[in-house]
Write a protein that binds this DNA or RNA. Structure first.
Lengths: 339, 339
DNA sequence: CTGAAAGCGCTTACAG
DNA sequence: CTGAAAGCGCTTACAG
């Protein structure tokens, strides 16, 4: 202790025990909510804790116990760059809300291409009790790899290479289906789509919903162009669609951010929106309400997404049996001007 | 050990010591990069570590040592909702890049209004060695409070109630100044601004730059409307400006996201951009390049922001003296179509 | 329902 | 430059 901030300040479990008039063991049992503690002891301990402002030492609990008292939030760096970022921020809020009040640390990790092995080693090395994995791209093997090590994980968004890995996702399929049904109900007969990339489930599920909606009415599912969740590629995709079908009268775009590019191209070519071409986006991001014209889109509740993700993992960690393997969150149509 | 995943797997420091033919003390010294270790021992230990795939137990290091081996990333929930979210995602990437390879955990905390005290207690309770504080709003007392406890912190973005708290920020003042100089060089003479809120330094600094740019040329600094970093409020602010000066010929908008709203209003009123009114935004977010017309704006490198933030904190933790108290990162103009 | 004691895996003076 | 030993602050069988 020669320099700087020395040992953690504050009382130890021993002081609490003395003040409460019980042993350290009993204090520990109360802190951890174990069953066989007399009401009398429990009360005394709680009083002592409050009085002393005691807070257990995380490192000591982790070292002595069999839990890390921490979970990881693993973010694919690539994914976070491609996907709309507001999504991630909202999820994070939800994760945090669900964690509030528990003595569980949230560790951030970015899944960099370079250190895949290190990361798996770290995660399965006992530093965390489980992991939340988000922003996957492609058939990232990470979820399955982690799951196979026995580490409890929940993936945010259906993983393509998931196997039996638990995940939480928005109901992308039904959101897209509802979007198409709206377009059909508006009398549109030549309905195109700008889909997400082939290698992301979120893209494929929205595409499936579009297909299904058209199939219901015996309409053609030929007008598909894949794109990559950027406005630029949305614009290119729109150009391609117009080349193939200058007389299309509606387009379902699998993300608001791509819809922006599509709107720009349509307007530049003199199409009136929604009169000539109706446009529906997906996400209900901040982009949707500020678009010109304001974008009709499919809403997903990203904060709920984060909360559910976390709830599912914590439930598993606390030994809950019979949890749903995976969970789909509802999506809903938001009518604005573009359709 | 009755159930589940028992103790952490993998070798302990003791095995490493045996394989290397030295004591645990020496292994520890090598791991922590201490000076007085013979080259021979150092080599032997490194070899043993590699051979066994040893990775030190974080909890044990923290408990035994005088460091937490972790830093916190504290996010103001309110702030993260208001500010453009891509900013945060970029910063996060930078933070992580800078942390790579060090044995330092990154703990996420959201500064919820409810648990301000809990949070300070946690942060100063020895769970972390320092904190990165971002997305502040208003005169949040958190930075100063934390700083006064002696906890090393670095704030992302100049705090209004900062006192002598170290921070890293983009050079908002000069970015705005450059924007105004551009507008002046284009022959504009009636240059308005949509400023950020009064209670955020980022808004005030950009406003100061605008003022200075106009003052340089003896132009009026009367056309200011404050707004709150949403597109809706940007639109309202633009309406107000046009009411006060229907003949304005340029507007500097303190954030791309507000510029979107302003563009919409201008276009709805029949102003041609940039012919009638030139518009310059700030941030060079993804919104800027997709705007119609594409937005001339001031670019800040958010990833560099995150890296610098982290570098500053880690340097302080490693005992670097004479670090710059605070750091300003350059901003630069990006010419597109709107000005 | 409770307490004494061992032990988690490291770091750190201390003595050499 | 190095090692033996104490200790960080908890949890957890074990015995009662």
């Amino acid at each position: 202790m020669t320099e700087g901030r020395s040992r953690r300040p504050g009382p130890r479990i021993e002081e609490v025990a003395r003040v409460a008039g019980v042993s350290k063991s009993t204090v520990s049992r109360v802190i951890n909510g174990e069953k066989y503690v007399s009401e009398r002891s429990r009360l005394a301990v709680h009083r002592a804790i409050a009085m002393l402002g005691y807070s257990p030492n995380h490192a000591a609990r982790t070292l002595a116990g069999s839990r890390a008292n921490a979970i990881a939030l693993v973010i694919s760096e690539l994914g976070s760059r491609v996907l709309a970022d507001p999504f991630f921020a909202g999820v994070l809020r939800g994760v945090h809300a669900e964690l509030a009040g528990r003595h569980v640390q949230l560790l951030m990790m970015m899944n960099q291409p370079l250190d895949g092995e290190d990361q798996v080693a770290y995660l399965t090395g006992g530093h965390v009790d489980g992991a939340l994995v988000v922003s996957l791209h492609g058939e990232d093997p990470l979820p399955r790899t982690l799951h196979e090590t026995g580490l409890p994980i929940v993936v945010g968004g259906r993983p393509l290479a998931g196997g039996a890995v638990p995940f939480v996702d928005s109901d992308n399929f039904n959101g897209a289906l509802q979007a198409v049904r709206l377009l059909v109900s508006l009398g549109r007969t030549k309905i195109a789509t700008i889909a997400g990339p082939h290698d992301m489930a979120v893209g494929m599920d929205r595409l499936s919903g579009w297909r299904c909606g058209l199939a219901e009415h015996g309409m053609s599912v030929a007008l598909v162009v894949h794109s990559d969740f950027t406005p630029e590629s949305g614009a290119l995709a729109m150009e391609e669609l117009l080349r193939r079908a200058p007389d299309l009268d509606a387009v379902f775009v699998a993300a608001d951010i791509m819809a922006l590019g599509a709107l720009r191209v349509l307007q530049a070519r003199g199409y009136r929106i929604p009169d000539d071409v109706a446009v529906v986006g997906f996400d209900d991001s901040v982009l949707a309400s500020t678009a010109v014209p304001p974008l009709t889109t499919v809403r997903q509740d990203v904060e709920q997404f984060g909360r559910t993700l976390t709830w599912r993992l914590l439930s598993e960690l606390s030994g809950d049996e019979k949890l749903p393997q995976s969970i789909l969150l509802p999506t809903s149509l938001v009518r604005r001007t573009s359709a």
